[in-house]
Design a protein around this nucleic acid. Structure first.
Length: 809
DNA sequence: AAGTAAATTTTTTTT
DNA sequence: AAATTTACTT
């Protein structure tokens, strides 16, 4: 294969080493996808391996799709009898289970339903309620995450319960709910995401026959993003490679960012122990980024312990510096990004741009700013198409048709559109279902039967409504069996679920803008069905499975010029220009991870992933203020910013920034470096403040004057005063302000004013090691006073006031 | 029972 | 600030 000559030696070896176990440690941008796809191609074209003997597993549909596409391109012109199976872990499991789940003898049938997270929570909510517990004490959310975490460790509810210490009532309650939850899913013939893996592993463990079947089928197995595999996925791979160990895994421990989903970095770190004859190939040449970007990424990740040492290198030269911007607030940050994008696009429209943030909630301000400047953008994440209520409703009808035991689907649509069924009736139905020990659908059939003569807490009218609903579903079932012969079966049934159920009419009669959008979304669903029918061989079953397992990532348009997404979603992608935004303490690293060293390391890997997405230009931004839950909060720069080498950064901030402060601090330790650096920044700043003729100039000037009136600034240009909140002293106090001032003094008797050695929340302090910081919280009294202080660049620290040796700043 | 107003909660990250 | 849940009215 001549194309192989375009590979570097380790890449080429990774392609040609087809037999046995192989671990490819592929650094960011090292041509990993190219190697995997060529490897598949090589197996087929050179080694004459029948395509159906090849299995490639990925985590996302997007990655699978891309791989499929690339392999097809490489194999163009070749006539193949079959295609290699390129699937996600979950879709692979669905495939296996749809064929063989009945061998498990756990009561599941091939027409099982898949429950997504919100379905799970509904079941859990009902369980918590039926157990007689207060929903507020035991939120469905918490229980769901506990159950999922437990399942991903490979436990069942008995193992979970056995780990419960008898004193812990809450955990004991969760264990009870866990048990009930499992029973109800079983009754509903439903599997959650985790079950897909669990049941498959259990099936393979149980049956030698089935294990053989898949071992014989998949002779060559590839696993992408191996660092993200959890215990279950590991077990699955173990079983599938039992016979021939032609297993190739690709990954990068530095990019392991799914610990929260049970991913075990140990799987990749100890691959050689699991497969003693394994070969290891390192791909360290980076083809993506400039040296500057790689240096920045390396500087960040080297703060982590416990990783495989590797150093990326590139033939590219230094390239642009990393651009830095400190914003006043989130809106200002978004406007900055928008105006820079506009500038880039004026110069060059080819360069794709990504705006990466830690949480989906951050996207909104950017969307607004982009709309204002009429910048076309593409957003990944948030609510996916299949998560929209109307789409879920119609899908619920279809799920119910395929699996009438699906209680969640039934309850979702039984009164949508309204059929005159209220809470009382539905509660009675649920009660009967529990009482008889059957599904809601069966209970409904029993109590609506003419011959049923037991007393019921249901009016005649409601009973008629139930019969009516039953007829609607039965008609859909007939439609499904009738149309299964035609080649438009999916479309027909989907349309029936929209029209014949009265759903479309409900929306039409609403006649609002919103209902019009919903109708459009349903049309979109019909379009998806039409596409599905074109691919033949796949029926309604697969269509629904697809809807259940597809995520928003799948709609990522690789040709879009501007894309907004979370850092997690960006993994595996690359962009000439990247904006990494919201680099603030509590956002990135996220507040939930900040106190746990392990989780903080994962955040750092996440930052590493973010930085290494950039090919040519990287921006890092943060804001001084941000709204959290609708409340304005001060935000401190991320500690990750502090881990970037200062000489790689160019400051684009208006006014004095945290960066210039950090630089002048560095100055004190190293006078020589200092003059070079601070000379540049100080001369730049006032110019920007006075002459900048942009949208936020007024704000910039206001910010500047705020500093001037501050009066406390040192003459050396120490820019720390952004944190200051001393305006009250120069302004007349309002009545409310006076009250607040009084009460805060009373709460903390030795106030900062009366006692120079103690510090109240909001005051600024200086620490010998961490420098200047903002006091966030004060707890305890006397010698036991504990302070929570946020130090820009170092994060939040808890300090004992007595020992911390803090100074007023 | 259904629609509206008020109260409450929400934000990690994803298959 | 927005979305979801609950409480209240008709």
């Amino acid at each position: 294969m001549e194309i192989l000559s375009s590979l570097n030696p380790p890449q080429r070896q990774a392609v040609e080493q087809t037999e046995g176990a192989l671990l490819i440690l592929a650094g960011a941008g090292s041509g990993k996808t190219r190697v995997i796809t060529l490897r598949i191609t090589y197996l087929i074209a050179e080694k004459n391996v029948p395509p159906f003997n090849i299995l490639a597993v990925t985590f996302t549909n997007k990655a699978a799709g891309e791989m499929r596409e690339r392999v097809n391109t490489f194999l163009q012109g070749q006539k193949l009898q079959s295609a290699p199976l390129i699937a996600t872990f979950h879709s692979l499991c669905v495939r296996i289970l749809r064929q063989d789940i009945e061998h498990l003898s756990e009561g599941y049938t091939k027409s099982f339903t898949i429950y997504d997270t919100s379905d799970q929570q509904k079941v859990i909510k009902a369980c918590v309620k039926d157990i007689g517990l207060d929903e507020k004490q035991l939120s469905a959310r918490l229980v769901q995450s506990q159950i999922s975490a437990s399942k991903n460790r490979g436990e069942d509810y008995e193992m979970y319960a056995s780990r419960v210490e008898y004193a812990d009532e809450r955990r004991a309650a969760i264990a009870r709910v866990f048990k009930m939850y499992e029973e109800r899913l079983n009754n509903a013939n439903a599997l959650d995401f985790d079950d897909l893996l669990i049941k498959t592993v259990r099936l393979l463990r149980k049956s030698q026959e089935i294990r053989d079947k898949y071992n014989n089928k998949f002779k060559y197995i590839l696993v992408d993003e191996y660092q993200d595999t959890n215990a279950l996925q590991f077990a699955l791979i173990q079983y599938l490679t039992e016979k021939q160990q032609n297993i190739c895994v690709v990954g990068d421990d530095a990019q392991s960012i799914y610990g929260f989903r049970g991913a075990d970095i140990g799987n990749i770190l100890s691959f050689e122990e699991h497969y003693p004859n394994a070969k290891v190939i390192m791909l360290e040449q980076n083809y993506r980024s400039t040296q500057t970007i790689l240096d920045a990424a390396d500087a960040i990740i080297s703060n982590n312990e416990g990783r495989k040492e590797k150093k990326l290198w590139t033939k590219k030269d230094g390239g642009e510096k990393i651009f830095y911007y400190q914003a006043f607030d989130a809106d200002n940050e978004a406007r900055f990004v928008a105006s820079r994008i506009e500038e880039h696009q004026r110069r060059n429209l080819q360069d794709r741009i990504a705006v990466l943030y830690r949480t989906n909630a951050q996207s909104r301000v950017f969307e607004d700013a982009f709309r204002r400047l009429r910048i076309d953008y593409n957003i990944v994440g948030g609510f996916s198409f299949y998560e929209r209520a109307e789409v879920k409703d119609v899908i619920a009808y279809l799920k119910l048709v395929l699996n009438p035991f699906d209680d969640i689907a039934l309850l979702r649509v039984i009164n949508t559109p309204t059929r005159g069924l209220g809470k009382t009736t539905l509660d009675e139905l649920s009660f009967r279902a529990r009482d008889f020990g059957v599904s809601h659908w069966e209970a409904l059939a029993i109590i609506t039967d003419e011959k049923y003569d037991q007393p019921l807490n249901i009016t005649a009218r409601a009973l008629e409504a139930l019969r009516n609903f039953k007829k609607v579903i039965e008609k859909l079932q007939v439609k499904l069996s009738e149309s299964s012969q035609t080649n438009k079966s999916v479309t027909e049934v989907v349309m029936a679920a929209i029209e014949d159920t009265g759903y479309a009419n409900m929306l039409r009669s609403e006649n609002s803008d919103e209902s019009a959008t919903r109708l459009e979304n349903l049309e979109e669903l019909v379009n998806a069905a039409v596409d599905y029918d074109k691919q033949e061989e796949y029926g309604l079953r697969d269509f629904i499975d697809h809807a259940a397992l597809s995520s928003d990532m799948d709609k990522f348009d690789r040709n879009a010029t501007v894309t907004l997404m979370t850092v997690h979603s960006a993994k595996g992608l690359e962009f000439p220009i990247v904006f990494l935004v919201g680099l603030e303490d509590g956002i990135f690293p996220h507040s939930r991870s900040i106190n746990e060293p392990k989780e903080l390391e994962e955040e750092r890997r996440l930052a590493y992933v973010a930085i290494t997405r950039a090919e040519k230009i990287l921006y890092v931004t943060h804001s001084m203020r941000r709204r959290v839950y609708g409340e304005e909060m001060t935000a401190e720069p991320s500690q990750f910013l502090n881990e970037l080498p200062l000489d790689l950064i160019q400051d684009l901030s208006r006014g004095s920034s945290w960066l210039s402060f950090a630089r002048s601090s560095a100055t004190q330790n190293n006078k020589h470096a200092a003059t070079a650096l601070s000379g540049e920044t100080i001369s730049e700043k006032p110019k920007n403040l006075y002459t900048g003729k942009t949208y936020n100039n007024a704000e910039a000037i206001a910010e500047f004057f705020k500093k001037k009136t501050d009066g406390q600034q040192s003459s050396t240009g120490n820019q720390s005063s952004i944190f200051a909140s001393r305006e009250e002293e120069s302004k007349p106090l309002s009545g409310m302000d006076k009250l607040r001032a009084l009460s805060s003094q009373n709460k903390n008797p030795p106030s900062a004013i009366s006692n120079p050695n103690s510090f109240v929340p909001g005051s600024h302090v200086r620490h010998a090691k961490y420098g200047k910081g903002l006091v966030l919280r004060r707890e305890g009294t006397g010698d036991n006073v504990k302070l929570t202080v946020s130090f820009p660049g170092f994060g939040q620290k808890k300090l004992i006031e007595k020992f911390a040796n803090l100074e007023k700043a």
